[in-house]
Design a protein around this nucleic acid. Structure first.
Lengths: 209, 209, 209, 209
DNA sequence: ACCGACGGGACGCCCCGTTGCT
DNA sequence: AGCAACGGGGCGTCCCGTCGGT
């Protein structure tokens, strides 16, 4: 059996698990169901994952690693010397798009938070911090321009933005249309902008300046 | 056994379940653990609740009913003709305080969202809508004063506020000190305010005016 | 559920196991088969026995305890002051009858010897020794009468008798007819007698004399 | 790989299996253990034997074929015109020596009796009958001499002898010392002799006479 | 209310024998 | 011949929810 086929097997198990963890849910998805859906036997599942939990862990880690990639792309974006608002907007868009693309993973991630207290938190913090660091950077540079409201704690502002990105998914049930995502991203960015900055988005200074 | 004693037993079961659902978590809390912690036998638990799920459901419903009470108190507050900012602030404070007081229930509520898809959503919507309706009312009245940013969708703004209240708990690990809660509430209210309104909080009009 | 019913359940499991250990054999008898044959669930089997091995152990112990009862009955017989030959004959008859009645347990006992090295040996030795002690007693008293062949080691003779009782089962496939058992017992006793004693069975002295 | 090397491999597998079937026993000896002990891989074991059972079968067949050789040597012995007692003694010695040399195979043979009902019985009967035929021959010739006890069934006597040979192993744990084997063989032969014959061993007639 | 046996069913483990690939 | 993934299937554990007896 080739190495490619091994990877395929693992991927098919993950894919089946992802589908079944979304519905009928992690608890109701039996290992044998995942195996059958992946076209393998139960034993094979245990050849690739020590645990049903390990499958969950793998899914969550895959998801969180996507976050890290977003923050990397942001670093590059920063080099292109765009306006602060544009940078924020891109960031929100990217994060939102990633979440939408992985909306079916939400239940799994919530479960992971429950039953993988340490593992999840560790990986999650890593991913969150990647994004948070970027936002903190934007904020810090903004302060130099004297455009940040003096009575706003930027930590809360950052948390607010993230939680909104999160919440907007479950509340508004955003479709996968790119246009929709853009519209929502703009709204969220505007909210963040007005909450934090004293000037209009149109006159936002460049990040690099 | 008197009715009072029966209620006591039920309450002790709920209390034990609440403690155990928080740690070691819903899945890891066995019915016999709950029974033992409540000082009763496993059979007695099943005399009061048809299901382990039913205990979870009862806990969540208790929690959500508290939300409804908050919105009721807001209606009264509105009658006292305070400023819009003050009303918002009180609302955030109340919601935050309630969440803090029930912070240990968060895991249980998340689980309920997973495994009680219909029951939870129904109750949750009811509670959410109660608050949301109040906020929508505040927003609607604000519009009449012409102080709302024209490029902001108030639906997103409302969602943002709620998600922030939610998120601030897990991120900042707010203690139960009333002063702390007040400080955080003010920050969140300010964020919401600046995001939505064009004027300074100090000159906010009265709700009833 | 009454205590009687509990015992019944355990007995029915043992009975089913006994049947299935004989055919299709210990290894081929699945726990679920035993459970089904006993009219209970697999879980119930594990409520009564920690192991599949424990069922085997229980069967073997029951069987061996029967041996002990035989030797007890021999002690009483000895008090009736019969002839040595008659005592030997009764002993062989009893042992043979017990083995015939439990012939279906032979495979299980052989398996037990394999997979329960210590447990089996311990119990088996106890049962064997019970009988062996009786036989040794008969032999010892015989020596006093000067009727034992001087070139015969009575230890080997005793072992020979036991092994014959054992072997005659598998080789001759004795039916359960009492007459058949008596006939075989007489043959075996005669073999033992002639091998050990110098006189004719008809003139055998009494045990007590 | 040469044919010799193949045979070597097969022999080493059998040797390892023999060791492991003795301890920790057939059921507890995993195929991978046998392979490792033989210095080959698990797959190679399956190249030489279709089954784990096939290994057991091969061991038992090797063992039983040794019995056939004993009976062949007895035929030759008979031609040397020795006394009946000497012939019996040699027979018992040979059988006993063979059993002692293969004492470690006993557990495997017992298992084979359980799980290879047909295969074992067939081969076993063949080997047993080879010996039994010889003994029957001796007995038949003895009858002609009028030295057999009239009240003894020679079938039982033959069975008795075989079972004793078998039993003496497990009960007395005979060492491999030749002298010990000789002593035990003499005892067993004497037991058989006295049980069956009316005359003293010293005056036993010759087999051929 | 309490107790304990019970049916049910998933989990993780372990080992067998098979099958392609190297 | 060696290797490793795989299907298959039994074992023992665990917990749930039920039920009858005390």
């Amino acid at each position: 059996m080739s190495i490619d086929e091994q990877l395929m097997t693992k991927r098919r198990i993950l894919s089946a698990a992802r589908r079944l963890f979304h519905s009928p849910g992690y608890q109701n998805a039996r290992v044998v169901d995942i195996a059958t859906a992946a076209g393998v036997s139960r034993a094979t599942v245990y050849n690739h994952f020590v645990d049903k939990e390990a499958i969950l862990r793998a899914l969550v880690e895959d998801y969180l690693s996507g976050y890290a990639r977003i923050s990397e792309s942001m670093v590059e974006a920063a080099d292109r010397d765009e306006s602060i608002f544009a940078v924020l907007l891109r960031m929100v868009e990217d994060a939102l798009a990633w979440r939408v693309a992985n909306a079916d993973l939400r239940p799994a991630i919530e479960i992971a938070r429950q039953i993988l207290p340490d593992a999840h938190t560790a990986a999650n913090r890593a991913a969150d911090d990647a994004l948070r660091k970027q936002l903190a950077d934007v904020h810090r540079r903004s302060v130099k321009h004297g455009i940040v409201r003096p009575d706003i704690d930027l930590n809360y502002a950052a948390t607010a933005l993230y939680s909104m990105i999160e919440a907007v998914l479950s509340s508004f049930d955003v479709g996968s249309s790119e246009a929709e995502i853009k519209a929502v991203a703009e709204q969220l960015t505007l909210l963040q902008w007005y909450a934090v900055y004293t000037i209009s988005p149109e006159v936002a200074p460049n990040l690099g300046s």
